[in-house]
Amino acid sequence: MTRRRFIAALFCSLATTWLPGVGAVWANGMRKMVLVAARGSDLGRLSPGDTRKLFLGVPVAATPSNDPMHPLRNASDPVLEEAFLQKVVFMSRDAYERALLIRAMRGGGSRPARFDSETALVDALLADKSAVTYMWADRAAAWPNLKVVAELWQEN
């Protein structure tokens, strides 16, 4: 990279971080976490509190037929996963894994499936109308066959 390109890249980075107008766009476009499902599913809206319950293994029904929802863990972006655990589940990763294991040992069912690949995750979502996962809003918008069922967190 030439010195001129490097300075231009640095300027853009600082501008997106510090300038109020540009920063707001970045915050609205990038740092908003949403819960998504397949566009064809009949899942209703879900609160962040119910999302927390769902990902901790508590059966949560959000369909007219009262079928329980299936949470899927999005591990394709480590920052997203960490933010989800801290801002929505309110647990460290170790504490979260332990809580899921204790629930499974008690007979509370399987732990949520974890996906390292976003493509595989979306395939699983589209194959199961009761499945939901969390994504950054801009990533969710990139998949036209997904719909947002909850707004989970937004960076201030």
Partner: peptide, 9 residues
């Protein structure tokens, strides 16, 4: 099947 869940620990 996506609708089924099972795992071994």
């Amino acid at each position: 099947y996506a609708e089924s869940r099972s795992e071994w620990l």
